[in-house]
Simulated assay, not measured.
Amino acid sequence: MGIIIKNLNFIYEQNQIFKNTDFHFEDNKIYTLVGPSGIGKSTLLDVLTGFKKPQSGTISYQNVQKSEMLTIFQNNQIFPWLTVSEALALPFKIKNISKEQTDSRVKELLKIFELEALAYKRPNALSGGQLQRVAIAQGLTLDPKFLLLDEPTSSLDQEAKEEIQDRLLDEQHKRNNTMIIVTHDIEEAAYLGQEIILVANQQLNKLENPTFGRENRRHSLGFYEFCILLRKQVRQL
């Protein structure tokens, strides 16, 4: 189950980004993608969603449709004329879901992401962390099976970043979906990634995370020892 990549070849502006690449993204897991800038992390998200087409190779979608995949980009923009509630309701309206169901789901999302006090505010009245919470809540409106996030916390301060990270873990646990997260933040990769993917040499190299699922990891010496190991591996790419 999930998404299976076989013999993927992708060339962009005469640069070979992926070469005969194989990988299996399984259901109900969180993957974090790390590697140098320009190595192909964000490109991979575009290839998975079909936004960019590989020159050769196959991508098999098992038990998932492309319509069940959604990407949240860095600094995801909310329409400036919509309130928070209206922004969350928009995907339901596009899908012609009833007003009763829409109102109920929006109310639930406002509570989950602690946005109730901001329900009638517009984007220009929100902080960066609040905007990012709205963007992620909007991304979860229709319960995508695969949620792809491109540097979802890069513009946030440390406190807001940790809050978003904890929200993502909670929501993935509740929904049993798959998340694929691009990040340049080593601690974020180690905190969120059940499996960490090192993108290098036109390949996707999987690294198991021995700290994933442990309680109070942010206060654990073992977690930071793993971060040091991961940082060394990324610098060697």
Results as ranks from 00 to 15, higher is better:
205 N>W: 12
232 K>A: 15
49 T>S: 08
94 I>T: 03
153 T>P: 03
211 T>N: 15
56 S>Q: 09
168 L>E: 00
167 R>E: 07
11 I>M: 11
126 L>I: 05
15 N>Q: 14
114 E>A: 11
70 L>I: 08
197 I>N: 12
35 G>L: 04
136 I>L: 06
97 I>N: 00
103 D>Q: 13
9 N>F: 13
187 E>F: 13
199 V>P: 12
39 I>E: 06
36 P>L: 11
148 L>I: 03
94 I>L: 10
193 G>V: 10
78 I>T: 06
210 P>C: 12
233 Q>C: 15
75 N>P: 05
162 E>C: 06
125 A>F: 10
207 L>D: 12
187 E>R: 12
195 E>W: 11
132 Q>G: 03
188 E>C: 10
73 F>L: 11
187 E>C: 12
167 R>P: 01
127 S>T: 03
11 I>Y: 11
165 Q>V: 00
115 L>I: 02
26 E>H: 08
127 S>V: 00
141 T>D: 01
175 R>W: 03
160 A>I: 02
61 Y>H: 04
85 S>T: 05
134 V>W: 00
43 T>N: 02
7 N>P: 10
192 L>G: 08
21 T>D: 06
105 R>P: 02
79 F>R: 08
10 F>D: 09
217 R>G: 14
200 A>T: 14
93 K>C: 07
145 K>R: 05
47 V>G: 02
